[in-house]
Design a protein around this nucleic acid. Structure first.
Lengths: 203, 203
DNA sequence: TGCAAAGTCGCAGTGAGTGTATATATTGGT
DNA sequence: ACCAATATATACACTCACTGCGACTTTGCA
């Protein structure tokens, strides 16, 4: 890797960590681009050649993990059923999240949970992942119906996202999360009809 | 309803329809708040006493329908199973969407689909609805587990949202949508394991 | 009619994000 | 080591969304 590329990465990290540190110290809205670039010792204009917006800097690390998950989606051992592939992908995602839980991980989650606009962007990322899964799914099983693939990806990502978001909001205990995800996969796999409470009429 | 309230509603509609018309004519980014307020014959400052942001004006009508859906969630006949309630709610949502498909409905969808930031906000709305369903679900069946309720709502909203978004993107034929939603509900209800293509290993 | 509340407006300001021209640093080739 | 091509950083000027505030107008009610 050349000097130019190394410096670029260095600057990117400097901006990102300065931003997250300031967000943690004085809040998201209270931190301006000028503050961030001053702390990172670059010009304000430079910020935008590394991140398209102030919000994107929060997702920098998360996006890296998400890219790894997408790679994992492509890597599929022979003989694996699509459902098993899905299971594997979800567990890879959990590991990816756990890996992101160092240093600024907690701050990112906190920011996302308390800022509606950041929450919206996080959901958008999940939606993009969902579309990626639809593509892989139709590639994996060409005979699957279009609607079926869309519903499956939607239900899966929707369900997984809901439990994981809940677990993260609760402090993110890895074991509890793993257990919750197991339960979630079971429900989605065997159907909502398999939950007794849902088929029992209420007075 | 007094004169004041009537005028307020009138102004609100004037701003909303002027905005949507301009968005359709010259594009979202190309339309400024000043353009909208000029067309609606109010001061630029007034815009923000009706809508918190430029993006929110796109969702004005949609939010009204969503509020109706939430009311429908609360209205639950005795003897209905939670699963039946869910089915009813989803079909009410489809009707609500169909009702919104007059005048500016198509423009709203087009804008949301092509602007990532609007798409993110739309997903946020679905997420809020999801949380509302979680609350109702735990109210409906107090013995249901917390994780279970979260997964069920997530999978349901995720799956439904995915099919409906797909159908709307395809032009929104009511019959086709109804059929697709039926299929989606069947998959979610009976589980992903009930889809043959998902349990068959690929070479 | 008169008064309080609500709504409207103009104005001045902040801060995100963009286009552009200029300066500086890095690279690969000689 | 030098040069030319290229990538990157910066300064400057700008647009536009959005906010706070004080003045003014309209409406609802006694």
């Amino acid at each position: 890797m050349g000097l130019r590329e190394r410096k670029k990465l260095q600057t990117r990290r400097a901006i990102a960590s300065a931003a997250l540190r300031l967000f943690a110290e004085r809040g998201y809205e209270e931190t301006t681009i000028a503050d961030i670039t001053e702390a990172a010792d670059v010009s304000p204009r430079t910020f935008f050649s590394y991140f398209p917006s102030k919000e994107d800097v929060v997702f920098a690390e998360i996006d890296e993990r998400l890219a790894e998950v997408r790679e994992g989606v492509a890597r599929r051992p022979a003989g694996e059923t699509p459902l098993e592939s899905m299971r594997r992908i979800v567990f890879e995602m959990i590991d990816a999240i756990a890996a992101a839980h160092g240093e600024y991980g907690a701050i990112q989650i906190q920011l996302i949970l308390e800022r509606p606009s950041l929450q919206a962007r996080a959901l958008k990322r999940m939606h993009d992942l969902e579309q990626h899964i639809v593509e892989r799914l139709t590639e994996l099983s060409p005979d699957i119906g279009e609607i079926d693939a869309i519903v499956i990806a939607g239900a899966l990502v929707g369900g997984m996202n809901a439990v994981i978001a809940h677990c993260r909001a609760q402090g993110y205990d890895p074991d509890a999360t793993r257990e919750a995800v197991d339960r979630a996969l079971a429900i989605v796999e065997h159907g909502l009809g398999s939950v007794p409470a849902l088929t029992r009429p209420v007075p």
